[in-house]
Design a protein around this nucleic acid. Structure first.
Lengths: 349, 349
DNA sequence: GCCCCGAACTAAAAGGTTTTCGGAAACGTA
DNA sequence: TACGTTTCCGAAAACCTTTTAGTTCGGGGC
C-alpha cells in the first residue's frame, strides 16, 4: 500500500484510562437479567415486564451504557453511516451541500464520513475502498463543478447520489442547480426593471455552468423579444476578468444598461470598473451576479442582486433522496433544483 | 419531508442488487483453505506457505474481497476512525482545519466522521454520543473562535485534541494560532516599511482574538519605542465597520500612515474608504489585514498584505498529535502555532 | 389431573474477522 | 524405531449486539 502510507502504523491504543467500555452484559448483570432481556428492554420491545425494564434502564443509566454501533452494524448490515465524497477540496460549493446533507442526516441519527479526493481519481478510488470497507449505507458524491462526472454506480454495492455535479449516467440519481432557470430569473428581473440593453459576462465556456447560464440568457431575451447587448464575454471566474470585461463592454457597447454576470466575483469586478468609469450602479447600469457568495454580494457597494443556487437545500434534498434510495425507493435521473433570485440594490429602479 | 426528525425511520435496506457482500470465508473456500489461514495470508503473517498465500491472494483479488472494518474494529477495539466535531457550521475557520486534518489522516488510512453542532451544546452532546457509540479512536474539536471552550475530556473515553479554539483545561491538548505573534509580525513589518503613525482597527474586544492581536500591537510598538496612532478602534468583524472606522480615523488622526486591521474584511473596508477620501494605498497609508481570506486579500485593490494563521498546518498538526495521543503519547498544553505574514501591495514602500 | 396458553425470560446463534492454541505432517537425530 | 523440532494449517474463541427459538411458570379451562 504505497510508501507514504505504510509508515503510519497504527498505535496499539495505550490510553492511560484503559477502562474497558461498558457492554450490554454489564448492564444485564447489574440489573440481574440476561443480555437478551436487557437488549429488549433497551430497545423498547414489548415482551418484557415493566418493572424489569425499569431496572435495566436504571442500570444502563448508572453505567452510562452506550451500545456498540459496530456490533449492531455487523449484525444488521446497516451502519447508519453514509460517505460523502468530494473532489473539490470542499471549496465554495461543496460546503453548503455538505451542510445541507449533514443537516438532513444529523436529524435522523445518521453520521457522515467525509472524504476529499482533491480532484485525484486515484485518491478517490482509495477513499471509495475505505468507505466501502467501513460498510457505509450509501454515498453522496459532490462534484467540483456542474460538469458531469463518470458514474461510480457500477463499482459500488450501495446507493449513490450525485450532488452539484451530476453523473454521466442518466440512470443515476443526480441533483444539480437549474442554471438555465437561474439565469432566466436574472434576465427577466432586469427586463422587469425596464432594462433593454443587457450584456452577459461569464466564465470559461468549457464549463457547463457557463453554457447553461448563457442558454438561460438567450431564452429569457428571446421570450421578451429583446436582443442581447453585444456578444457574451467569456473569460475566467474572477474579479479581475470582471473588471477587464467591463472595460471592453463600455467601449464596444456604450449604451449598455444592464450586465448579467456568470458569478459574483465577475459582478464585483464589473461594478467596480463601471463606477470608476463614472457610470452609476444601478442608476446607469444594473448588475446581477450569480452564486450569492455573501462576502461579495452583500459587502460590495451597492450590494449585489444575485442568483442563489440554494445549495444547502440541494444538499439536504440529495441526502433525503439517498435515504430513500437506501430504502429501495430510488429516484433516477438528473433533478434540476430551482434557483432563487436575491434582489439587492444593484438592480434597484 | 414531514416533521423532520421523527419521521426518518431507517429503511430496511432493500437495495435491488442484493448480492451478499463477499467475506473472508468466500475467499477461503475458493482458495481451498480455512478462514484462519486466509486471514493470515491476507495480513502478511509469516506462518503460511508462500504458495498458499499466493492462492489466497488470487482468490481475494478475483472476488474483490474487502475486509469488513466493522468486524475488524469490533475485535481489535480500533476503528481507524476519528470524529471531527465543529461548532461553527464549518465556517471560515473550520474548513482549513478540517482539510489539514483530513490530509493528515487520509494518508494513514484513517477516516473522518464529521459532525457539526452549529454552536448548540445539546446538539454537541448528541453528536458526541453518536461518535462514541461508533467507537471513534479519537476526537478533534474545532472551535468557532479562539476563545477557550469547556473541556470534553472528562466525559470521553478517547483522546481529544482541540483545534483553533482551545480547551479551558490546560491539561488538554490544544492547538491555537499565535495571534500575539501574528500581530507583531504585521506591526514590525509596518515599522520596517518606515511607518511611524500606526493605527489599529479591530473587532469586538470580547473576542480573545481581538485582545491578543491588540496585545501584539502593543508589544511590537513598545519594542520599537513608537506610540500607537490613536486608540484601538474596536467594532465588528465587518467591512462596514472597516469603512466607518476609517472615517473616524481620518478625522481624529489625519497624519496616520498605516492601519493594522483585525481581519481582512475590516481591512477591505478601510482600504476602500481611505481611497475614496483621496489618500493613496499604500502611498499615503499602508494597510495590513488578518486571516488571508483569499477572496478578499487578493482581489482588493491593491491586494492586501495580511497575516495568515496557517490553519491548514494547524489542522494537520492537531491530527498528528491526536494520532500520537491515541498511541498514548499525548502532549498536553496549549500549543501556539506561528502565523505567517503574506506581503502584498497594500504595504509596498 | 391434564393440557394449553400466554407472559416473561434465557440460551444460543449469527454477523465477519483475528488470534491463540493445538494438531498434523515432514524431517532430522539418536 | 522413538523422539524432538519445525512448518504449516485449522478449530475455536473472542469481540458485542440482536433475534430466534425455546424454557419456565403460573393460571385457566376441561
Amino acid at each position: 500500500m504505497g510508501a507514504m502510507v505504510s509508515t503510519v502504523s497504527l498505535p496499539k491504543r495505550v490510553s492511560k484510562k484503559a477502562e474497558r467500555r461498558v457492554t450490554i452484559s454489564d448492564v444485564a448483570s447489574l440489573a440481574g437479567v440476561s443480555v437478551a432481556t436487557a437488549s429488549k428492554a433497551l430497545n423498547g420491545r414489548h415482551d418484557v415486564r415493566d418493572s424489569t425494564r425499569q431496572r435495566v434502564l436504571a442500570a444502563a443509566k448508572e453505567l452510562a451504557f452506550q451500545p456498540n454501533e459496530l456490533a449492531r452494524g455487523l449484525l444488521s448490515g446497516q451502519t447508519r453511516t453514509v460517505g460523502l465524497l468530494t473532489s473539490d477540496s470542499m471549496g465554495r460549493f461543496g460546503i453548503p451541500v455538505l451542510l445541507g446533507a449533514e443537516d438532513a442526516f444529523g436529524a435522523g441519527e445518521m453520521a457522515v464520513l467525509l472524504c476529499d479526493a482533491r480532484g485525484d481519481a486515484i485518491r478517490e478510488q482509495h477513499h471509495l475502498r475505505a468507505l466501502l470497507s467501513r460498510r457505509v449505507d450509501g454515498l453522496i458524491v459532490v462534484g467540483e463543478s456542474t460538469d458531469p462526472r463518470p458514474s461510480l454506480s457500477g463499482d459500488v454495492p450501495v446507493p449513490v447520489v450525485y450532488a452539484y455535479g451530476p453523473s454521466e449516467d442518466p440512470q443515476d440519481v443526480s441533483f444539480v442547480p437549474d442554471d438555465v432557470g437561474g439565469a432566466m430569473l436574472a434576465v427577466r428581473h432586469l427586463l422587469d426593471m425596464g432594462r433593454r440593453s443587457i450584456a452577459h459576462v461569464t466564465g470559461p465556456m468549457d464549463y457547463t455552468a457557463a453554457r447553461e447560464r448563457e442558454e438561460g440568457v438567450r431564452l429569457a431575451l428571446a421570450e421578451a423579444g429583446v436582443a442581447q447587448a453585444g456578444r457574451t464575454l467569456a473569460g475566467e471566474w474572477s474579479q479581475r476578468w470582471g473588471r477587464h470585461a467591463a472595460e471592453l463592454l463600455l467601449m464596444s457597447t456604450p449604451d449598455v444598461d444592464a450586465v448579467f454576470c456568470g458569478n459574483d466575483q465577475i459582478a464585483a469586478g464589473v461594478v467596480e470598473t463601471v463606477r470608476e468609469r463614472g457610470r452609476r450602479v444601478p442608476g446607469d447600469i444594473a448588475v446581477v451576479g450569480y452564486d450569492n457568495w455573501e462576502i461579495l454580494s452583500t459587502e460590495t457597494r451597492p450590494p449585489l442582486t444575485t442568483v442563489d443556487m440554494n445549495l444547502e437545500v440541494l444538499g439536504r434534498t440529495a441526502a433525503q433522496h439517498l435515504f430513500a434510495a437506501i430504502g429501495g425507493r430510488a429516484t433516477p435521473g438528473v433533478h434540476r433544483m430551482p434557483c432563487r433570485l436575491v434582489i439587492r440594490e444593484s438592480t434597484a429602479p
